[in-house]
């Protein structure tokens, strides 16, 4: 048996990891619901976010928060432009070509990042040092806690945005019936681009917050594929489901890696396979409620 201390440590690590997957999956699902495009390059927004925040932080003499906000917004603009300038034009093409295109974006972003910031591993100074005591002998690393808190905050914010604001409700409307939304005078194209921006911003935030854990290099965005697996586990198309699925694979992962180091990093896909076999519609079946 594992000592309790290790169990807590692994669980917290996994929870934080799952939250990071969840943040990326949110973007996947939002974009999918708005456009039926699965953006395989979504993890790259996270990678670009981490690099961009690092670049701003260096420019600002190490101050994290302004760099964080500005970096996330920059990636939001990138997401917006990718939809408005590229995706919008190819909508209606076969889903295979759209799939390949988003995969190609991934390669392009990784090369761009390598050209701009180099291929070495960099690290970002964040204010999240040390540990926070949990009571007793347990403690949680501050950087992990920051990810968990940020995820909760972002989820609450998004929930309020989508359920309370005119923009948010219009985005739901457009994802439920695009033509009817057009008929109501809702600027569907602009809202879809804003959805891309929101997805990109959340992924960028995840990248910066995860930087103390993963460090920063051009390959960290590949973690987006695990987030995709998590979203599938939860039932693709459901946001609560995607979050749940990501938390699940996130928590399982460190235990699996600890107990079966030979197949490190593979457990998310095993969980996904199991879920697809046993419950193909995902954990949260999307029967009726297609609420964003």
């Amino acid at each position: 048996m594992l000592p309790l201390n290790d169990v807590v440590h692994l669980a917290v690590t996994g929870l934080a990891q799952g939250c990071a997957y969840g943040l990326i999956a949110l973007g996947f699902v939002l974009i999918y619901k708005a456009t039926e495009v699965v953006n395989f390059a979504h993890g790259e927004f996270m990678m670009l976010g981490a690099f961009t925040v690092l670049a701003y932080s260096e420019a600002f003499g190490g101050s994290f928060w302004p760099a964080f906000v500005l970096g996330c917004l920059t990636i939001g603009v990138v997401g917006y432009l990718i939809d408005a300038q590229i995706m919008r034009r190819i909508i209606g093409q076969s889903s295979a070509s759209i799939f390949i295109l988003t995969v190609a974006f991934g390669f392009i972003f990784r090369s761009l990042a390598g050209i701009i910031w180099g291929w070495n591993t960099l690290s970002l100074d964040t204010p999240f040092d040390g540990q926070v005591a949990l009571g007793g002998e347990f403690a949680i690393a501050t950087d992990r806690l920051a990810i968990i808190v940020a995820t909760i905050l972002l989820c609450v914010l998004l929930y309020l945005f989508f359920s309370r604001t005119r923009y948010g409700i219009a985005m739901q409307a457009a994802s439920q019936n695009q033509l009817a939304a057009y008929y109501m005078g809702i600027p569907v194209k602009r809202l879809v681009s804003i959805t891309w921006a929101i997805g990109a911003i959340i992924a960028a935030a995840a990248g910066a917050l995860l930087a103390p854990v993963t460090q920063i290099d051009t390959t960290i965005g590949l973690l987006g594929i695990k987030a995709l697996a998590g979203a599938i586990v939860g039932g693709f198309g459901s946001i609560p489901g995607a979050l749940l699925g990501c938390l699940l694979i996130g928590i399982i992962e460190p235990f699996a890696d600890y107990l079966l180091p030979e197949i490190k990093g593979v457990s998310p896909y095993i969980v996904m396979l199991l879920v697809l076999f046993l419950r193909p519609e995902g954990l949260m079946k999307q029967t009726f409620k297609k609420k964003v």
Binding site: I169, A170, A173, Q176, M184, K290, K291
Partner: peptide, 16 residues
Amino acid sequence: VFPFLSVVENLEMGAY
């Protein structure tokens, strides 16, 4: 209609 919005939200979308 927008199936997963409430009746009043549907109406308000008309007034977007």
